[in-house]
Amino acid sequence: MKITPRLAFFSTASTLAYLGLAVLGSGGFAAFFAHPPLIVVALATLVMSGVALFTEANLSAGEREDRANRWVLPAFGLLGVLGAYLPAYTDRIGLWTFGGEGIRWLGAALFIAAGALRLWPVFVLGNRFSGLVAIQPGHTLVTDGIYRTVRNPSYLGLLVNSLGWALAFRSGLGVVLTLLTLLPLIARIRSEEALLRSQFGDEYEAYCARTWRLIPGLY
């Protein structure tokens, strides 16, 4: 994938804005970076943002798109803004917080592990990974490797990544925001599954029968 100046700019700007909201919520740089786990989380965010530039993820509508599902994009955007600021803010004022530095370190570990899980499938799918629910040219069904057990590993990574961020700030409200993320996330998954079912038919049905949608052993 060619890294264009525009792509690099928007990726860097959005990452810095996300971290900036967290710093603002924490009460400034000194307060944010007073906690080593938050330093780790910030560095991990920058690294993952840089790695993402080398994927082929896109916003292509491809050959066929479920346009009715586009509402999830602003929903994810709003939850992202709230998730960036509110956990840090509630941590600063002591609202709905729990645990101590151990919880922060657990959050940092989950954040990093889930970030890797989020990005790995993006590399596997290449240009088939779109921000839109769409069938891309030459689209094939991937059922092995990381997709052998869970049909949506990248979404699982997104969910746990959000939980890790919340725990890094010891934020009960952040955990609630993670749970709220399930609403547009499940809507997105169902839309994708309907499109893939219409595209691949029995092959996709057989794949669904032997795998979990999002969380192994649960859903």
Rank of each mutant, 00 (worst) to 15 (best):
L218F: 10
R190L: 11
L183Y: 06
Y89G: 03
L156G: 04
L214M: 12
A194W: 15
L59E: 09
R213E: 07
A17P: 15
I3D: 11
G102S: 12
A84L: 05
A68W: 02
E205C: 12
R148H: 10
L46V: 06
E63T: 04
W212N: 06
L173H: 05
S198W: 14
S191I: 05
L156F: 07
R148A: 02
I3M: 03
S11T: 07
R64A: 06
T211S: 09
E193V: 02
L117T: 10
L73V: 03
L119P: 10
F9K: 11
A52M: 01
L180W: 01
G145S: 06
D202C: 13
A206G: 10
I186V: 04
A166T: 00
I189Y: 09
G145M: 00
F29H: 03
R148M: 01
P216I: 14
F29G: 09
V47E: 07
D66S: 05
A209M: 04
R67T: 02
S130K: 07
A166D: 00
L179K: 08
L21C: 15
A75N: 06
V72E: 05
G201W: 15
L86T: 00
L177H: 03
L53R: 10
V124D: 11
V124L: 05
I146G: 13
R64D: 13
F9L: 09
N69K: 08
G100K: 12
I135R: 00
G131F: 00
F10P: 11
M48G: 03
M48I: 01
T140P: 15
A8G: 15
V150T: 06
R92S: 06
F129N: 13
